[in-house]
Design a protein around this nucleic acid. Structure first.
Lengths: 365, 365
DNA sequence: ATGAAAGCGCTAACAA
DNA sequence: TTGTTAGCGCTTTCAT
């Protein structure tokens, strides 16, 4: 194989034409004669010519690459997001750069400061929480940025969101319909917008059903199984009359951790405690009982973000790259599996410990 | 914020120096005076100068980027590999491009053909099976390629491998020690080198223990839970006297699928069937009973590959980039959890259905 | 210690 | 329809 890469000039020389002719032929410039074009293309093919991305990027000011900024990859949720992004970017001929932040602000800032190295033409951003000030300066960037699940509503960025409030409402309604009244919420980090939205949905569903939310039943959490286990521990320590009969968790990892801890303590799920997750990550069906959870279209979230970005790249560039953003709003939907049942019942079909609730609640679509 | 990025020339003009001076100051060229250097650095900082990656890449012929070619991301195993790669590449100041192949040869070829676009300085490659011919041509490439888990021993590439044979041997030995004699192997794709190596370990362990391997007990598989479920189905259809008392699976996903199917059919694990996985992916502890499996240092595999690549990038370049490769060999180790027990016993401590085996087997370190 | 100038591989404006 | 030329932003000789 050739050692040194073939350039446009090599092809031109071989053919006795100007290198600009080769460039034009490659770009299907309409002014080039059909015959020349095919001669050029054939020779380029024969010599194994491939365009040099750096050179192209330098003059065109775009690298045909997009960046994905994400807290983790070895996490099913983010892995699926990445898959969705990749699918769309690959089909559109972009290459994909990965920036894993591990949720650290330092890393996030680092990525953003590298923005002007222009390695990528646009960014898909999943960050925990950026200082407002930074956010505003980001809006001025000439390169488009798409947020996934954001704190950025109203700032002009493109973004894709899922209706968290509605999703959690569905989860809680389901439990209410099963007859639960004491339902605890294991939250995510308090500074997370998603968590606040889901908490709002939880409270709303309770209030609608005439149940007064008990602040004691809102447990602090994080994103991990360990946080779920810790929260479960706290639940187990509650006096019997205070103890909830059902738990809704900010996400599946928390729910899975809680399930594990609860089972360890000898409880049987769902008989002794109902459990609802959020996300519907792949492992949600691994656990026993399989986790009832709120399904998010995870891959589609990534794909939608990528589409938004590529779409914008093909039109608006420069100073107004982050104005008048579109918002894609996706819906979440409850998936009933095996981790919920009426209080005291073995499975959904089992005996019902309490009545069906004081009032009719919307049926879940 | 500034609309158009600041260049080296802007900084130079502002300072009334030549742009080459700025370049030198930035690169800590020893010939530059300490004073000039600090003035330049300060001004660059003040103006928000960031080097343009494309321009640099064009003249230096390297992009400070490496590519990771991987079958999937939303798969715990590959996600962890990616994490390991990212950790090392990030620390070394490289950016990471992701190429997800979904195990399709088309995609793999596509990536390789883009090699000469020089977007990346080197490649970490995880592929199912490349035609020998292509492999050899790859070896001639001027850019270094590191294989993870390869079919490439002896071809000169850098590569990182795990001792599959030994790993599977440990798994089977464990089952033999528990008293199992009829042990089935659910394989991966037959053209996979890993699968063949693990199969060899399986047979070796059996033979060492004086058990004749039964070809009937080698079940075809794939990488997925579905394949595991299908294999389990086949096992369930076997007449009682032929049916194995334990299953070792090519990987955890298969084992998890099999566990699920077996439980669905009313078997209790490990009482009615012992189960051993391979990989020790995160979800291995999600299932009940928790999966006994062969732990691979997954993240470290990725990290080691990245180190190998970056190491090579800092020395050998050009035509001999893929000669005299180093091989990093990592070890796997059995992790006993809850999915294995003596035949007929509830847990490891339970009663033993059969004697402890005809001969002493190495203890497992 | 610094400036001037060439050139990396490519696209695009300007000529012809 | 094609050739010539001028950069893109940077590093790196070669002068000075």
């Amino acid at each position: 194989m050739n050692d040194v890469p073939v350039t446009i000039k090599d092809v031109a020389r071989e053919l006795g034409v100007a290198h600009s002719t080769v460039s034009r032929a490659i770009h299907n410039d309409p002014r080039i004669s059909a015959e020349t074009r095919s001669r050029v293309l054939a020779m380029a093919e024969k010599m194994g010519y491939r365009p040099n991305a750096a050179a192209r990027g330098l003059v065109c000011r775009r690298m045909q690459a997009i960046g994905l900024v994400i807290p983790a990859v070895a996490d099913s949720f983010f892995g699926q997001i990445t898959d969705g992004v990749d699918r769309v970017t690959y089909d559109a001929g972009f290459s994909l750069s990965l920036y894993v932040t591990h949720g650290e602000l330092r890393r996030e800032l680092d990525v953003l400061s590298r923005l002007s190295e222009r390695r990528v033409d646009g960014l898909i951003l999943m960050v925990r929480r950026l200082p407002r000030k930074l956010l505003l300066s980001l809006a001025e960037q000439p390169i488009p940025i798409v947020f996934v699940e954001p704190q950025v509503v109203g700032l002009g960025f493109d973004c894709v969101r899922v209706d968290n409030r509605d999703g959690e409402r569905q989860a809680v309604r389901h439990l209410l319909e099963l007859g639960h009244r004491r339902i605890a919420f294991i939250s995510g980090p308090k500074d997370s917008r998603e968590s606040r939205e889901r908490l709002a949905g939880y409270r709303e569903a309770l209030l609608t059903a005439g149940v007064t939310p008990d602040p004691q039943l809102v447990l602090p959490g994080e994103y991990t199984e360990a946080a779920g286990a810790a929260a479960a521990q706290r639940v187990l320590e509650m006096p019997a009359e205070q103890r909830p009969t059902a738990l809704v968790a900010f996400n599946d990892r928390i729910a899975i951790g809680a399930m594990s801890a609860l089972q360890q303590a000898g409880l049987e799920i769902p008989r002794d405690m109902s459990l609802v997750g959020y996300d519907d990550i792949l492992p949600a069906t691994y656990v026993r009982p399989q986790l009832t959870t709120v399904h998010q279209p995870i891959e589609e979230m990534g794909a939608a973000a990528a589409r938004l970005l590529i779409d914008r790249l093909s039109r608006r560039r420069g100073p107004r790259a982050n104005r008048n953003g579109q918002e894609v709003l996706l819906r979440a939907a409850l998936v009933q599996r095996q981790s919920t049942a009426p209080p005291g019942a073995d499975r959904l079909g089992g005996f019902v410990g309490q009545g069906q609730g004081e009032e009719v609640i919307h049926s879940i679509s």
